[in-house]
Design a protein around this nucleic acid. Structure first.
Lengths: 337, 337
DNA sequence: TTCTTCATTTTAATCGTTTAAATATCTAAA
DNA sequence: TTTAGATATTTAAACGATTAAAATGAAGAA
């Protein structure tokens, strides 16, 4: 069992104090150690293959160079893409990323925050769940830097990086209207989080501005924990009777995937029987027999800004809050023509 | 700026030494602290909302309860699914997961291993890249616990959890043969890693056992860093002339997605013009106009076993090596009938 | 009263760094 | 030769926990 090399070993080998070694290895230029000694220390460090123990350093410095990333589910492509970009940006700045999935559950999110805060992460990037306001306030009270991503709480003054969901939804639904659709349904989550309300409001506004009546059977809010079943019954409702919808707007990737599978099984044809637009991209959307029109969120910018805002806040606690709202892009393809 | 509560603060408040507090909070039952004092300490800890500093604990104990996960790319669904399961299993055992993406590059992988080892992760779960043998040997020399996942090096005696790729490929190709196909092409990566060689060998064996000649134009090994272009030219080659293939076996999800998009653009119809089987599942595969037959890898078992083997090794360094090989399942659907 | 014994609590070292402050060494001017 | 001043190096405390070992104190025995 080879023991780890520490400053002490180098000090011993060279015959100086650990302080000197530390100065050479971590201050170098700015230190006042003589060149002669410095050279010897560096040589010894190399020979012994010394690597500083970052845990000890963290304890002393009160900084871990670690970012806690909390998302709903790391295996959801939306979040895993974001995670990847965050990883790359963090690496450039010498940070490590530790992650956790909340499964949209506030208590899981609480556990994760505590767990990671005890491990002294320098800050958090989080996609907050419904009902996690007190957690956010806790972080503020504890002065732990964080930035919200994807979702935010308009009534709490925090750093955040989000997409303009209202405009994105508004634009998407308008596109459906422009292409002659008049009875447009929407599938969203039953969720009070602002990003979802914005998507729904964008949809409603577009209908209203175009004087399209708004049937109660057209908007369906799906319980996140019972998606499959509720999507099916929602689609059944939308498609029954002679006043059935002629287009559907899906508020997320997951809803679209499940919904379209069901629509296929009912033998409806896109875009002739039904036009479709969905939020988020997905490999599946390209692959569908009728390539889907979708709202493309700027994942790259979202993630890069999150890291930038967070690290700025970590390095300068008095940095003023940043609230970034990016626009999404509608990628138009066959499913809505 | 609220300062963090430490053992010292509790000690002060109760009027005892930090040792006593530590005994109460971390040993409790087995400690010999009087019930009276113990109660007071617990009460104070609760009142002050004390949370132990895990960094300090890690330094003292020489254990961080952290697992380093190194995969090719966390945004690849294959790996993000695995990451999610690893996360869940690790959480149950009180471990945190930190991750890094190697992009299949050995030097990136080296950097990640060093970076995370300096942060004193207790062990690694890694999907090794081509040419990373020396890294594996380094971990062995340094006595850092690790387990390989998805890929392994047969010539190095390590812990690993992998899938029987040979059998999986052999079975898939046999299925194509059973359904009457005689000229079967394969798209794989140009990679010396054993998991890829096994898939290729499984394919070759199946052809040979069925006395199907094996045309040099049928197997194409694609450079990982130039996928798009090489997939297209490989498919062009497979489909040219009158001896064109009547089925294609894709060695990975990514190859299949890119390949099928190209095949679609050429207006070939699955399964009539061409039968298809691919490795790995993918949302897209369900969504394709002709649902794809695929080799389903047991991601759950893969990840769960990896965590189990690793934590066992961490907790008992003398645990003997475990080499687990799981079987994949062929999910048969329309694309090969 | 003095000595054991035992339960309880504290002291102090430790993990591997950093860094302010103290000390030692050297140079050059008086 | 002395000494101020600069330069180089070490000492020692600190970060926040753990834990072996020493100390304390009270009860019971002699």
């Amino acid at each position: 069992m080879k023991k780890k090399i520490s400053l002490k070993d180098i000090a011993q080998k060279v015959g100086v104090s650990t302080a000197t070694v530390s100065y050479v290895l971590s201050k170098d230029k700015e230190s006042k150690v003589s060149i002669k000694v410095a050279e010897k220390v560096k040589k010894a460090a190399k020979e012994l293959n010394y690597h500083p123990n970052q845990i000890a350093k963290s304890l002393k410095m009160g900084k871990t160079f670690t970012i806690g990333l909390i998302v709903a589910d790391i295996s959801n492509p939306f979040f895993s893409h974001i995670a990847r970009i965050i990883e790359d940006e963090a690496t450039k700045l010498n940070y490590t990323v530790v992650f956790g999935s909340s499964d949209e559950k506030a208590d899981r999110s609480w556990d994760l925050i505590n767990f990671l805060a005890n491990r002294q992460v320098d800050g958090f990037i989080l996609a907050p769940t419904e009902g996690s306001e007190e957690q956010i306030k806790y972080l503020q009270e504890e002065n732990i830097p964080f930035v919200l991503i994807d979702r935010y709480f308009p009534e709490i003054d925090t750093n955040y990086v989000v997409v303009d969901n209202y405009q994105a939804a508004f634009g998407a639904v308008n596109r459906l209207i422009d292409t002659g659709h008049k009875r447009i349904g929407m599938l969203a989550y039953l969720n009070s989080l602002h990003h979802m309300r914005d998507r729904i409001n964008g949809y409603k506004s577009a209908l209203k501005q175009n004087n399209l009546e708004d049937d109660t059977n057209w908007l369906h809010e799906i319980d996140f924990f019972n998606i499959e079943k509720e999507v099916k019954s929602a689609i059944d409702k939308m498609l029954e009777g002679k006043l059935r919808v002629d287009a559907i707007f899906f508020a997320t990737n997951t809803l679209a995937v499940i919904g379209l599978k069901y629509i296929d099984s009912l033998k409806y044809k896109i875009p002739d029987d039904l036009a479709i637009i969905s939020f988020d991209q997905g490999e599946a959307f390209d692959f569908y027999y009728c390539p889907l029109t979708y709202v493309k969120q700027p994942l790259d910018e979202l993630a890069k800004n999150a890291v930038k805002v967070l690290t700025r806040k970590i390095e300068n606690p008095s940095a003023r809050k940043e609230q970034i709202c990016l626009s999404a892009q509608l990628i138009v393809r066959k499913s809505c023509s």
